[in-house]
Write a protein that binds this DNA or RNA. Structure first.
Lengths: 219, 219
DNA sequence: TAGTGGTCTAGACCACTGG
DNA sequence: CAGTGGTCTAGACCACTAA
């Protein structure tokens, strides 16, 4: 009760443990039963279950009960977690005007823009290359360092993000880095990050190595 | 009160109207205020707001209030609505064994599979081509016609869907149909549709015309 | 200090399903 | 018929923030 975490999140954690040892498609106890087991109100249990349903761990049947999802459904991707965690290295960074990029960031063309290029590596393979563009002024005043940019890119739910998937041939400057043949078709994802009020924070282009990485989304 | 729709959905609709005429980043009334305005409990108003926040129409600040999202955020895509509505024509359909496809559908290789090919057209342009594979038996017994397949593909939330994004050069057999040059890089999305219990229902390959259609996802 | 959203309670009635 | 999830109420206390 005096924990810092909300009750429903503690219950969610306990349910998650319980579920992990259950067979798919078996029913969990009824909401009223769980409420009395955990000694909380039904609405609190329900909120915990709501989130597990949203995350695909459980599914409900209106009149029969709540059930454990099939095993292969446990892996849960959404747009926010498209980018899995791996080792990230900054390749280089510069600051100048970018006429093509400025309009996208709602900036005047003469304004300086910061460009940072990352590579994402796993097991000596470059999985993808990231180009991030952000307003120079914004970067200085409110971000201040590359770690902050990384935290924005990896943040969950703090920003509004729009991803556009663009097919292309691998850009020649990335052939050696990605270690793939010339003219290989790849997917580049162009992402716009906005604050909740709509202000554009940064633009990102991610070049995926089709031989080493896949883009996968589940509901 | 005697409507068939739940109260919170009616309130959601009314809030949506109210919001649509408001400037971005202006506050909506407090939850307690709305509750008394609508003459319902705060939890009911809250449920309506919860959904609008999930859908990106509103955003909350823990201590300041709830606000209207920026205009450009109103457009809301998610994985389930990736496929926008356009005119769909069935190009052809056949039923035979598909050795490469059967394992994906968890079927024995000798089992017959139904393959249906659609084109999606808007303004005389072919936006994409869809290949759908489903178990012949399943198709007969539980689906029964092509409209049912379409409804599965366009359904929201009734199935678990996994999308994999694959870059490739346009298959030669689709060059004329999509009206794009040979060797054009395109994106093919391979989607697996499952029931909530994990059973695989169908597999789908969607070939996007990069000149006429874009794949875009927002959170 | 007054107002906000976040959480929580202990009830309630409904429609629907399965035995 | 008993049990389920879906909805709803009328309160409550909390932490935080802006005035």
């Amino acid at each position: 009760m005096s924990m810092s975490k909300p009750l429903y999140q503690q219950i969610k954690t306990q349910l998650l443990q319980k579920i992990s040892s259950m067979q798919p498609n078996t029913a969990i106890p009824a909401e009223r039963t769980l409420a009395s087991e955990f000694n909380v109100s039904r609405m609190t249990v329900r909120k915990a279950i709501d989130e597990l349903v949203d995350e695909g761990m459980l599914y409900r049947d209106k009149t029969r009960g709540t059930f454990v999802s099939g095993r292969e459904l446990v892996k849960k991707n959404n747009v926010a977690t498209l980018i899995k965690e791996d080792t990230t290295h900054v390749l280089y960074m510069n600051r100048r005007t970018f006429e093509e990029i400025a309009p996208i960031l709602n900036l005047p063309v003469y304004e300086e823009i910061v460009r940072i290029v990352f590579e994402c590596v796993r097991d000596h393979d470059v999985l993808r290359i990231d180009e991030v563009y952000t307003a120079s002024s914004y970067y200085c005043e409110e971000i201040g360092n590359i770690e902050k940019v990384l935290s924005i890119i990896n943040s969950q739910g703090s920003y509004r993000i729009t991803h556009t998937f663009i097919p292309m041939l691998v850009p020649v400057q990335f052939i050696n880095l990605l270690n793939i043949p010339m003219n290989t078709p790849i997917i580049m994802v162009r992402s716009i990050y906005r604050e909740m009020n709509g202000k554009i924070i940064l633009m990102r282009k991610t070049y995926y190595n089709p031989l080493k990485d896949t883009i996968e989304i589940s509901n």
